[in-house]
């Protein structure tokens, strides 16, 4: 059999089922979440809002670690900078909602020079260096009196909403950013860059020698993740609406995004979303016992990293061969060929 014939008997597909099912399911879900604040009780809408903020952060962290192997433990730098960029634009008189994309952009711009420093280090040293960057950003912001210094600043520009429509606006801000981030990540991973990332993850040396621009791919991912976390920070500032260095630059943001994506499954789009669901279920269940929900969540993440490194979604996917949001390719023999 010639190569050409054998190739024609192979079938390359991306989805495990008809993409139409995914599309219809997505449209239904998106419509439901878009009208949720008018249907569900206010306390539940508030949980959903915080859930979306975590989904944004976890998706970005997963892009860094799960797809590009960069364990950043300083992503709170960009959450904080995004929140403060929003505060800055709001003080200047801009609507905080309009400031969200600008805050994301600002974080992406700041991330570019940062990569030239951080990429000199690898592995664990890279990780701690991201931490130093976050620490430095927090200290510098804390010294700027115009932005409230160490005590924080109220986010202006939201006073023209009445209390009920304010909660709706806060919800829709966090929901729409989450939607953009998840869809954006999906599109990014199915692009040429996604292919470079996949080859890099499988074998970096081989990817380099095949001409893949590994460092540039890493740089783009780091900038995108910084912009995404910046948008999360902007939404966070709008949801509170108070901005304070110790809160927005808190290490716990990174811990949450890391645990959520580890539990759900690194290296899949669905994983961080499932991990975020686990987080909020645990929070509802154990939230009244202080930080214990967080300790349980972290133990779960450590256990999963050791015994089930593909996470909950990875385990489900391997068991049932389902992909909801496929970014890879499936090659199988065509049934009609034989």
């Amino acid at each position: 059999m010639s190569t050409r014939e054998s190739l024609s008997s192979l079938d390359v597909r991306r989805s495990t089922h008809s993409p139409l099912i995914t599309l219809v399911g997505s449209v239904v879900l998106v419509s439901l979440f878009s009208v949720a604040p008018w249907i569900v009780p206010a306390w539940f809408a508030s949980i959903l809002m915080n859930f979306f903020i975590l989904v944004i952060m976890a998706t970005m962290w997963n892009l860094l670690a799960g797809y590009s192997g960069m364990v950043s433990i300083g992503q709170q730098a960009f959450v904080g900078l995004g929140a403060y960029a929003t505060l800055f634009f709001a003080i200047k008189g801009m609507s905080p909602l309009a400031a969200i994309p600008l805050a994301a952009l600002a974080c992406g711009v700041i991330a570019l020079p940062v990569t030239y420093l951080l990429f000199r280090l690898r592995g664990g040293y890279f990780s701690i260096a991201t931490w130093v960057v976050a620490d430095t950003a927090m200290i510098i912001i804390g010294t700027v009196a115009y932005l409230g210094g160490g005590t924080g600043h109220y986010l202006p520009g939201l006073s023209n909403f009445d209390p009920v429509s304010l909660t709706h606006v806060q919800y829709l801000a966090s929901w729409s950013v989450a939607l953009v981030v998840v869809i954006g990540t999906y599109v990014l991973l199915r692009s040429r860059l996604g292919l470079v990332l996949a080859s890099m993850r499988d074998n970096e040396v081989a990817a380099r020698s095949a001409g893949a621009h590994v460092t540039s791919a890493r740089r783009i991912v780091f900038i995108v993740a910084a912009a995404g976390c910046g948008a999360a920070g902007a939404v966070l500032a709008i949801s509170q609406p108070f901005v304070q260095p110790g809160n927005e630059f808190s290490m716990s943001w990174t811990a949450e995004m890391l645990f959520a994506s580890m539990i759900g499954g690194l290296g899949t789009i669905e994983g961080p979303i499932i991990g975020s669901v686990v987080y909020f279920v645990l929070f509802q269940w154990l939230g009244q016992y202080g930080a214990w929900y967080f300790i349980v969540f972290g133990s779960l993440a450590v256990g999963i990293a050791i015994w089930q490194p593909r996470g909950l979604w990875g385990a489900l996917r391997d068991r049932f061969h389902v992909e909801l949001l496929p970014v890879g390719h499936w090659v199988r023999e065509r049934r009609s060929a034989k």
Binding site: A65, G69, V71, G123, A255, L258, F259, G298, V302
Partner: peptide, 16 residues
């Protein structure tokens, strides 16, 4: 597993 997992595990332990 790999050095990557070690980072995740020890960071998790640190937070814990």
């Amino acid at each position: 597993r790999d050095p990557f997992t070690t980072l995740l595990v020890t960071f998790g332990l640190s937070v814990l």
